[in-house]
Amino acid sequence: MAKKVKKKACDFILLLTTLLLVFIGIIMVFSSSWPEGIRMNDGYYFLRKQIISALVGFVGMLFFMNFDYRFIYRLSKLIYLFSIISGLLIFTPLGVVKKGARRWINLGFATFMPSDIIKLGSIIFLAAFLSKRKDTIREFKKTTIPTIMIIGLSCGLIYLQKDLGTTVTLGATLVSIFFVAGMKISHLILMAIGAIVGLVLAIFTGDNEYRIRRIVAFLDPFADKADSGWQAVQSLYALGSGGLFGLGLGKSRQKFFYIPEPYNDFIFAIIGEELGFLGTLTVILLFMIIIWRGIRIALNTEDLFGCLLATGIVSLITVQTLIHIAVVTSTIPTTGIPLPLISYGGTSLVLYMSAIGILLNISRHVKVDGS
């Protein structure tokens, strides 16, 4: 591991930007979930849960901000094992089926999605695994094959939960870690071909008619806007009606049961409708600041594990944000992907804030210009 570096203050810009996004998320979750809350006879239901999750996430962020990330290196195998076990719990009586998919674990006192735990656990483990093999990183048998097996196991567990969007997100994130570690381009091309073949098979084979319908709807959502193209069309209506300045906070029309779960997979559309182009631009700029600070932290980290871990966290946020915005703007076929730090969801918010905490801790051990 790298020599000991005197710790300093964390990256304040990264911390402030994260808290701003979480605050925006709480406000927008409250606004977009109000109609659903009223239908449940409690308009503040989603707001309360999001605030509690944000507080827990803040504690997690503070903890990992002060927990030396180099100890995470030593615990990487245990963390990954825990994440895999949490994913396997889906197939036990603790697994809960919602909307035709088994993606939740019910512990009685709390419900969580193991896919979020698998994402962070996989990033930590792969970063530690590759940092131990920096001298053989370009060897197919010693490093590339084991890496493909790790990616396959992690993504496979999520795919079995019928969550193709998250599978693609995690796969792209883990490959980006391997790429930064120094993999051969020929191996990258081979993995890309394998991923494309796997994606095509996932869409067009088996009992996946709904995925094919999403592809067809993506090509022309207005051709069947009352059925398969409904979500994409309503999302575009929301963004279009927002204009430059938006209809005003709380004044969205599409959240009144036109867009399914507007506080989660389509929250960016509600931001566009209520806060307009300027509101969406502000959110995008805040994410760009997080990505920029994360990249600088990764580039200035002295040890390989810290670099790869920071790369993985930033890549995960980047890929998931891009997919969410692409879905909402009908740039890619519809898939259920929450917007990091903003969308409703306790497990996601706590895990992302904790991941940012790890990134902040890495920043305390490196010199980053302007921080």
Rank of each mutant, 00 (worst) to 15 (best):
Y80T: 04
V175N: 12
G60C: 08
A298H: 06
S86L: 09
N300T: 03
P146I: 08
T334H: 00
M353C: 06
F125T: 09
L94R: 00
A54K: 14
F305V: 01
L130R: 03
G165R: 00
V328Y: 05
G250C: 06
T166M: 05
R138L: 03
G25T: 05
I259A: 05
F140M: 10
T143R: 01
K141P: 05
L20N: 07
L153N: 05
G312L: 12
F256E: 14
I124R: 04
I295Q: 05
P338M: 05
G312V: 13
L341F: 08
S315N: 11
A310M: 08
S154G: 10
F46I: 04
F82V: 15
F125R: 06
T169K: 02
I203A: 11
L19T: 05
P93Y: 07
V216L: 10
L130Y: 09
F140W: 03
T205H: 06
W34F: 15
V350T: 07
G243H: 12
Y44Q: 13
K134Y: 07
F12W: 02
P114I: 10
P260A: 04
K99F: 00
L16I: 15
L351P: 02
I72N: 02
K142V: 14
T136D: 06
V327S: 00
L75T: 06
S228I: 08
T311A: 09
L341R: 02
A202T: 06
D220K: 03
A2V: 15
A192W: 00
S315P: 08
G43F: 10
F71L: 13
P221I: 00
V197N: 04
D224R: 01
M40N: 15
V29K: 04
E209G: 15
E139F: 09
L78N: 02
L81K: 02
F266P: 00
G100N: 11
V350L: 06
D220A: 13
I317W: 01
I358Q: 06
A101Q: 14
K134P: 02
A326P: 04
R296T: 09
I85L: 13
V5E: 13
I118V: 04
L341D: 06
E302I: 09
T166E: 03
P338F: 07
F218N: 01
I51D: 11
S115L: 11
R214V: 00
N41K: 12
K49F: 08
A202K: 03
V314D: 09
R138T: 11
A238C: 13
S176Y: 08
T205D: 09
F91C: 02
S371C: 11
I123R: 06
V168E: 04
G95K: 03
V22N: 01
W292N: 15
L153M: 11
R74Q: 07
A192K: 11
L130H: 04
W104S: 05
I51L: 14
S76W: 01
I27S: 10
A172E: 07
Q320T: 15
T321D: 08
K134D: 10
I290G: 12
N264L: 09
A101G: 14
I323G: 09
F218T: 14
F63L: 12
G345P: 08
K4I: 15
A223M: 06
T329Q: 02
T136N: 04
